[in-house]
Simulated assay, not measured.
Amino acid sequence: MAQVRGTILTERDRALLAYVGVARYVSAEHVHRLVVESPNRKLVYRRLAKLCAAGSRPGDGAYLRRLEFRRAEGTAVPVWALAPAGRAIAEESVPYLRPPAQKDVGHQFLEHTLLLNDVLVELAVALRRSPVAPVSELPFRWLCEDDGVLEFEMFHRHTGATAPAVLKPDAILEVTGHQRRLFLEAETGAHSIATANPGSHGAVLNKLQRYAYFFTAMAGAGAATYYARAFPDGLFPVLVFLVHSSERKRRVEKATKDWLGAQGTSSFRVRVLSFDEAAGVLAGFIRDGRAVAAAEQRRNPSARLDGAKARQLREGYNALAEALNTTRRAIAEHNARGGCQVSLPPAPVEALRALKDLIRHDLLGEPHSAQKGASIR
């Protein structure tokens, strides 16, 4: 077991280090969702600062590294990644952890990665037993992008030549319980879907074509496809495009459906999901093998809100509960000093608890626990 250095690690610290190892980069919001139960954001930054601090003895390294990138409008955004000491801890609980990359990604791809990791965090929160449950117990494996690539050879009809090609998925989601391996590609809308030139494809269809070749083409003179050679476990491949809007989703769905219809393949599947619906749809599939479409979720009154709106509702509830508790404490302190008394009606504890459970379990999909209290943790 790795030696504990400097900061004394709690169970939540160890869980956090494992999540960071899986995600590669996390934001403060990710950390808050994963391991901090209090609505107080200062606790997040305080704990991250301690995990970034080296110990007082020689060789006592920090567990995390703090990086920073700037968005297009100039806003500075801090992110955290594993330091060597943190990686040693993460490897203890995540046996499938990928090797560390030789260097950090650039700021443009870092923002891209954080957007994808929003989906990972929501999946983990929805499907884990508790905030300190081992990451290895999750009913899925999330493999982030690293330095590795998927290599194959591709025949180009317009040139009549075969040339080496590579794929570098943004992430791979393995769901062994349903025999599926999902290759996630996050599309931010910056690239074309298709082109009018019959000799070329847009960026999305070009990526689909390369995946199709990787999934179906035979590797050399052997009897296995490139996919089966790279992944001999027999999991069925699914290509998932994650897009930023419903309109983009509609357009990508149409383009991929038209392309697949012309190919007539059944060796793999393609799904298109918006970022807002992705965690809910994927969590439903991981639970029971059924991916509920967004339209069906809207028709079903018991379906969850999309992740962003559900989180806003939770944050609003937490703020309301904290304000109510603060007000009641102030009035109680005032009454204790004597003088004019202010009467207080009983706190609506049961109503608040029911609302908390509705948001936390029915909308956000978090597992039930024995904890009680007005604030959503």
Rank of each mutant, 00 (worst) to 15 (best):
R5E: 10
T7P: 09
E11T: 03
D13F: 14
A18D: 02
G21C: 07
V31A: 06
H32R: 12
V35D: 05
V36P: 07
P39M: 10
R41T: 06
S56C: 01
R57Y: 13
L64F: 02
L67P: 01
A76N: 00
V77R: 03
R87I: 02
A90I: 09
E92P: 10
L114M: 11
L115R: 13
A124N: 09
A133H: 11
V135F: 13
S136T: 12
F140E: 07
E145P: 04
V149F: 10
A163H: 12
V175H: 10
R180P: 05
E185G: 00
S192A: 15
A196F: 08
S200R: 15
G202I: 01
V204L: 08
L205I: 05
L205D: 01
N206F: 11
K207A: 12
R210A: 12
A217V: 09
G220Y: 06
A221V: 13
A224C: 08
T225L: 13
A230H: 15
P237S: 01
L239D: 00
E247M: 02
V252A: 02
K254Y: 02
D258G: 04
G264K: 15
G264V: 08
F268N: 03
R271V: 02
V272E: 00
S274E: 11
E277F: 06
A278F: 00
A279I: 01
A294C: 11
R298C: 04
N300A: 08
P301S: 09
A303W: 11
K309C: 04
N318A: 04
E322Q: 14
T326Q: 14
N335Q: 08
Q341P: 03
S343N: 10
P345G: 09
P346N: 07
P348N: 03
R360I: 00
D362V: 01
L364D: 08
G365M: 07
A370D: 09
R377A: 14
